[in-house]
Amino acid sequence: MLRLDGVQAGYDGTQVLWDVTLAAEKGAMTVLIGPNGAGKSTTLKVINGLVRPTRGHVVFQGEDITRTPAHERPGKGIAACPEGRRLFPLLTTEGNLRLGAYPKGARSSADETLTYVYELFPRLRERARVKAGRLSGGEQQMVGIGRALMSKPSILVLDEPSLGLAPKLVSEIFVKIRELREAGLTVLMVEQNAYAALRIADFGYVMQNGHVVKSGPPNQLLDLEELRKAYFAIP
């Protein structure tokens, strides 16, 4: 469904991605793991259109979107939940969620989708009138994911959903993400927390220093020794 082909990218002359090729299959949960500084978040920014690759292609549902501007991508069905959530702190929970339904295809069915999001995260219905800035970290993460869902995406792209959350909350959020995948949504997730991510994944990629160094189904990647080598650059 989504494919990156030999992507190179960076910021201001500092190259971060040297050669990234990966694919997120339809209806599957794909995770991208690796230590910080490996280029995971940059890879997501390439997918969102926030960073333009210097080389390589991004293909989504058969269409080359390498040069599609970031603001047009949600309309094509790519919904992102950025790292650190990036909510609008002065808007209420519901206000933040409704903003997610901004793409044309999603506006008319916003009410239905909202009901769906509230069913998925009942906690958010209780907090609907609370300003996002006053929510707990876990609740904010739920709003972030909910807001991404509001655009009725074909693929949900998540950046480090576990960041800054207590272990109990991490597993709670991950259970929800798994539920989404069970319901048929395609998910691509970036995580440093390799174990938690691989547990719920269908397929995983390991990144190191801007390269994809390993890929495979979780049971092949869940090898502590191998992961440790990748994370700590042990030869």
């Binding site: 991490v170 259970v175 927390n193 174990y195």
Partner: peptide, 21 residues
């Protein structure tokens, strides 16, 4: 340090973080 369980957990995530698919 790269063999230290606390470090591995900090980087790779705790194996105890249970998620039931």
């Amino acid at each position: 340090v790269v063999e230290d369980p606390a470090v591995i957990e900090a980087y790779l995530g705790s194996e105890a973080t249970n998620v039931t698919p």
